[in-house]
Every structure is written in structure tokens, then in C-alpha cells.
Amino acid sequence: MFEALLGNGLILKKIIESIKELVTEVNFEVTSEAISLQAMDASHVALVVLVLRASEFEEYRCDRPQTLGVSITNLAKLLKIAGNDDSIILRAEDEAHVLTLVFTGKNNEKMCEFNLNLLTLDSEHLGIPEQEYSAEVTMSSSEFSRICRELTQVTDTLNLSVDKESVKFAVSGDIGTGSITMKANNSDKSEEKLILNVSDTVSMAFALRYLNLFNKASSLSDEVVLSLSPEVPVVLKFAFDLGELKYFLAPKIAE
């Protein structure tokens, strides 16, 4: 038996909204420690890694580890029915064929119960080594989101350069070229603050289309942490009370 009660159901709604355009069918791994998933997008360019810690749920029980194959598309449809103030219970019997979702209103005035059919999915699991990155950028998630969105109007590729003093977002397209540079600072204003932890200068190129999809998670966390090393995928990390959502994106490389 697996059962998890989440008092703040809105967070699950936001998580699923943040990944549904990247991955459509995923295996959730449920253990006594956590609910987690790892899934690549169809083109194998981006990877979503989600961990929700058991200890952060109001109630949590998982008698035996289980893999739950879920259509994210269909889960998103059901979660749309949950109110923003609703609590959410996730429940599955051992060797389950359905995932039960129970949405309960704040004053217990209304309860919705749905059984989502589970899928048997072949999943390709990637081993991601722990590694030190050359540069780590911590900044406002909404500011990063805004920069990516604005630069998408110029072209489809973001050139990201980080040194010990600043981070530069540069683009080059048919209409011309441009860049936005932000200096490391410890401003009280969260949208201005930028923390750099840089051992080596890094300059890499990434597809803005994917960064824009990742930035849907800015509703989950005020901050985003970008981890960069030459010639390896960038990591965008959004941390929140319940756990963390990380996205990996393979760089664009010179032809």
C-alpha cells in the first residue's frame, strides 16, 4: 500500500504543469523515502528529475517500493479538477493498476475521487554522476524566465557565459545581436540578486525553446540555480519545501 497526503495540493498541480510539455508518460518510483521520477523528452535532449521527500508530506506510507507508470497528460487533466486550496491524497495498492487521487476542499465541503489507469512503460534510466560544476549561478527564477522569454524574440539559441564577476546572456539572430549582462550582487531585492560560484569561466550555447519550458517551474521556487561545466549538460534546479525539480539540457555544440 502506498498513500501520501499533501495538504497543499497546489504544489502538485504546479509540478505537473511544469513538466507536462516535456514528458508525456513517466514512471514514478515510490519508496518509503520519496516519490521520484526521471524522464527524458521525446527528442532525448532534455531530462526531468523530480524528488518529493516523504518526510515533507502530512502523511506518508509506502509498504513496498513500486513503479507507477503514469500518463502525465491524463494526470494533468485530473489535477485541473482539484481546487488550489484542496488537499490531495495519492493512493495505490501493491502491484497497482490504478492510482487513486482524492481532492478534499479546505472545509471538507467537497471530496473528489478519481482512479487514473496506470501504464506499463519501458523506461530508459540514465546514470547521472555527481559532479562539481565549473560555474553555479543562483538568481531570481522570474528574472531568468523573463530574460529567456525576451531573448527568444531574437533567435532560438542562448549563449551563456559566466565568469567570476558576471553572467552574460547573448543572442545572435537575423535581426541583429545583443546581450544582457548581470553582475554578481547581494541585493535585498530578490529579482536583482545574483550569486556566482565560479571556479572556471564557462561559455556554452543552449536551445531557448527548452529553457522556456523549464521556466514553467519558476512558479515553484523564487530562485533557480544553474550549474554549468564545459561540454556537459546544464542543470537548472528549482528547490521548494516538498523537494526539488531539476532539468538537464544538452548543450548545442559547434558543427
Binding site: 531530462l47 530508459e124 540514465l126 546514470g127 556537459v232 549538460p233 544538452a250
Partner: peptide, 14 residues
């Protein structure tokens, strides 16, 4: 010009 690389060229399947 740049080309988009894919993740399995960095991480191996487990």
C-alpha cells in the same frame, strides 16, 4: 552554426 547534442551522449543508461 551549432547543432543540438543529445543527453545519452553524456550519460549512460543504467
Amino acid at each position: 552554426a551549432t547543432i543540438q547534442n543529445i543527453l545519452p551522449s553524456y550519460f549512460s543508461s543504467t
